[in-house]
Design a protein around this nucleic acid. Structure first.
Lengths: 222, 222
DNA sequence: GATGCCATACCATAAAAGTGGTATTTACAC
DNA sequence: GTGTAAATACCACTTTTATGGTATGGCATC
């Protein structure tokens, strides 16, 4: 687990430089990107990390402009890392750079605070453009990914919330929110109606509510 | 109100051509685009329309691959036009091409079924790329617009619905959706609990539901 | 002025939901 | 191995909801 500090040569004023950090476990890729950034005007690669834990520790005290973040890392994932870092430094921009093109990874990354999402196959020139773009307030992304984001946007969504409910309780709440009666829930889950009652009682206790509607509002409608 | 049919010269097989329609009221822009498409291999401009009504009438019977749609049109807007056409031909792709960069226009367009959103200032080469991209399942858009979409995506949302409920019934339903008990609703509206009951019975009848949660889901969560 | 819709209101009853207590089994942690 | 959390289950009881019928005054429309 190493953390390499790249000191940028002062060939231009520091203000103009976009300060970048790289979080990527594959050495070749990490050093390749760092090399590209180092050679390019307007960019300075301030840190490179081979894992999310090191990145978290350093970046929470030394934020940069843009973080190039891989998702699949040993130990903590890039998503978890962003979730922790974003609230600390809301102005810090995260560019996810990964091989994943599936909905789940894309949406988790965006929810964690990523505002750029590019694929590892992106060529170097495009990478630099994307970093600039992100830094200037854009959201660079592959148009196939944009499509997924738009599709999701066009459909109404209802996403769950966690609270401290157990898996089973969340499952119950899900059915509760559909308007099913206790008996129907019991049948669907092969449970006794009494068990359903018990679960729901526990859900209400945890959520500090007194009715189905209150529970649904609290968990599903912020 | 004219509708010009451009017959594409058969210099290449028809299957490879992306069939495009243009809806744009400014003649210079409309003909400019048509010219660009006409000169470019792989594209055929099948229709141009100077207003949404004509576009609607023709396209509902003669769908194309991609519709280049302006928003600000005389009479019916491009948004309304898309709302009507999209359900008829779900495979037809709409590329909104406008000067508007504000949230409201972008989101209405996307909700109406647009999957591409570019600005009028887009240069011709980029326009052709974007049309190809859209046709191949991408969602080309300016990265500033992508950012707006992502921002919205990252925030939760909730929007109302009307149905055929009276003003009073909607008011009742609103309180019902907050999880208030009949007595509480009655107190808040200075009504008898029995009147509250009656209203709610009527609401359920109109919505064809049997419980509070079903009613809420039907009206508020599409 | 008859008809229909809306808002109000009452009565009655059945079904569902909510609240309390308690118990067993499994599993995981300390 | 003792304690705790989770999932299952039963009983009893109260409150809230859902459903039925019915009625009256106001207002608009035909």
């Amino acid at each position: 687990m190493k953390c390499v500090l790249h000191i940028a040569p002062f060939v231009m004023t520091f203000e103009e430089m976009i300060r970048v950090a790289i979080v990527e476990d594959i050495t070749d890729i990490r050093e390749g990107w760092a090399g590209i950034l180092g050679m390019s005007e307007g960019f300075t690669c301030e840190f490179t990390f081979s894992n999310a834990e090191d990145a978290l520790q350093t970046l929470k005290q030394h934020p940069v402009d843009v973080v190039l973040m891989d998702i699949n890392l040993p130990g903590m994932t890039g998503i978890e890392c962003m979730t922790l870092l974003k609230p600390l430094h809301p102005q810090m921009q995260f560019m996810v750079c990964t091989v994943y093109e599936d909905d789940e990874h894309i949406f988790s990354a965006l929810k964690a605070g990523a505002t750029g999402y590019i694929l590892k196959k992106t060529e170097p020139g495009k990478l630099l453009d994307s970093i600039s773009d992100l830094h200037q307030g854009g959201s660079p992304m592959n148009s196939m990914i944009a499509r997924k984001v738009i599709s999701n946007f066009q459909k109404p969504q209802a996403e769950p919330n966690l609270y401290t409910l157990t898996q089973r309780e969340q499952e119950l709440l899900q059915l509760l929110s559909k308007g099913l009666r206790y008996k129907e829930i019991a049948n669907q889950l092969f449970l006794s109606p009494d068990t359903v009652r018990t679960h729901i009682r526990n859900i209400y206790r945890k959520l500090e509510v007194q009715s189905r509607t209150e529970a649904i509002n609290k968990v599903f409608h912020s």
